[in-house]
């Protein structure tokens, strides 16, 4: 996925601003990266270079940290983020079947973002909602006891809501 020049510029500016909120100590590397991701939704290489410069680290060290941890993503997420829980309890209650359903419905593989950047699909290790297994996080909302049919319904209703919102906005203009 290629970033536009504008996106790169925003990334640079945002990470500069975020960095300056912290002392330039190496112990702040992860908090800074988390904040950058909080603002941008991802940490592109352009942002890593700014942070590395601020903390006086070789950029490859920042790259090593970003690529090590699950939390960080280097490409823009979709407008809606779907995270399928793959914890033990979800697994034995068919978590892999749910992941398959999302992949099939969105037409992407786990870790990818749809062409139109509407959806991104991820797996999470465990969100600690084991008693409601299997669960999926849809934009941070925990969807309990999900089934393949519920996946279809959820997607349909959200798409409908989005569509209505767009039409509503267009109508207002």
């Amino acid at each position: 996925m290629k970033l536009t020049e504008e996106e790169k510029q925003i990334a640079v500016e945002t990470s500069r601003k975020v960095s300056e909120l912290f002392d330039p100590g190496k112990g702040n590397l992860i908090p800074i990266l988390q904040r950058v991701q909080g603002e941008l939704g991802y940490v592109p290489p352009e942002a890593m270079e700014v942070v590395a410069g601020y903390l006086d680290l070789p950029p490859v060290e920042v790259y090593g940290v970003v690529t090590f941890y699950n939390q960080f993503r280097t490409t823009p997420p979709g407008k809606h983020q779907v995270k399928v829980c793959m914890g033990t309890a979800c697994h034995v209650k068919g978590g892999h079947i749910i992941l398959d359903s999302w992949e099939r419905r969105l037409g992407i593989k786990v870790g990818e973002t749809t062409e139109d950047r509407e959806y991104s699909l991820e797996r999470v290790a465990c969100v600690g909602c084991c008693t409601l297994a299997p669960v999926t996080l849809y934009d941070e909302e925990v969807i309990p006891k999900i089934t393949p049919t519920k996946v279809d319904g959820l997607l349909f209703s959200h798409q409908l809501a989005d569509k209505q919102q767009k039409e509503g906005n267009a109508g207002e203009k």
Binding site: G27, I30, G64, V65, F68, Y69
Partner: peptide
């Protein structure tokens, strides 16, 4: 408060420390 970035291995003491120090959790 330090937020872990999602690495099971950080449950291991020395890896957890590495991550607070700004390193990969190794």
């Amino acid at each position: 408060i330090f937020q872990g970035s999602g690495a099971f291995v950080c449950g291991e003491e020395t890896a957890l420390i590495a991550s607070i120090e700004g390193e990969p959790g190794i």
